[in-house]
């Protein structure tokens, strides 16, 4: 369970989140949605402990973020950032193996169990044939899948993903969502995912969080949150575009 109470956070004096409170129950699949700049990434980064909080507190399973040691937190939350800039090249296998770091001692790079698990994750994410490929030679979508594979290899009860579907073709989008749904249903992994596509949210997420300008607009079961009225207001679709309850936005008229 993730309890966020009254947090404020931002960059260089600019507050992105203001007095933000929300509670994610255990093993929920929640889509975080909202216009650009609404603070979705900042929220995820805050929960992952990557963002300094100006005010407020975040508790995971009852313990405040600051009470976790780095390695303990790494066994709780896996985070797939929005962008991954690769400066130094590693192979897909090496990168996914890095996900095992929270469980290894500092002198070992892998154990036979780790290797088995990484192989399994690579198979699951359809990356097996790219195992020895270097990151610099991957396409945008392949790189993304490698990062998601790393997060899965981390074997955490919570996985957060910031726009994981960007750059992916439609088959891979569904594949990723299916993998996440499977983790959620079979292993009760809590999934918090920033999405831009309403149909995916409606199809996969049990809950949705609509954000605007650093504040919560609506939070609850997806079908209750993503109503035409809520989406219309939150995104400021105005009179030109119209959102219908199947998740598609069309031009009016």
């Amino acid at each position: 369970m993730i309890e966020i109470s009254n947090i404020s956070s931002g960059y260089e004096g600019k507050r992105v989140l203001r007095n933000f409170s929300v509670t994610f129950e255990k093993s929920v699949f929640c889509a975080v949605m909202g216009p650009n700049g609404s603070g979705k990434s900042t929220l995820l980064r805050s929960i992952a402990g990557l963002q300094l909080l100006e005010e407020g507190d975040i508790r995971i399973d009852g313990l405040s973020l600051s009470q976790y040691k780095p390695l303990e937190l790494a066994r709780k939350i896996a985070f797939v950032p929005q962008r991954e800039d690769v400066v130094f090249d590693f192979s897909v296998f090496e990168v996914v193996m890095m996900g095992r770091n929270p469980y290894q001692n500092r002198w070992e790079f892998s154990t036979p169990e780790d290797e088995k698990l990484v192989e399994k994750v690579l198979e699951m994410t359809n990356l097996k044939h790219l195992k020895d490929r270097m990151l610099g030679q991957l396409s945008g979508g392949e790189l993304r899948r490698a990062m998601i594979a790393r997060a899965i290899a981390q074997q955490t009860p919570i996985i957060m993903l910031d726009e994981p579907l960007a750059n992916l073709d439609v088959v891979h989008q569904f594949e990723i969502m299916d993998i996440l749904a499977e983790l959620n249903q079979q292993q009760q992994v809590t999934i918090i995912i920033v999405l831009h596509d309403f149909p995916y949210a409606l199809q996969y997420a049990q809950e949705a969080l609509l954000m605007k300008e650093g504040e919560i607009q609506h939070f609850g079961p997806t079908s209750e949150v993503l109503t035409p009225e809520n989406v219309q207001n939150c995104f400021g679709l105005g009179s030109r575009y119209v959102y219908s309850s199947d998740g598609i936005v069309r031009k009016r008229g």
Partner: peptide, 12 residues
């Protein structure tokens, strides 16, 4: 080498 955020998330 993979970046500060990634490293922090992996417990570094």
């Amino acid at each position: 080498q993979m970046g500060e955020d990634v490293a922090k998330n992996l417990g570094v």
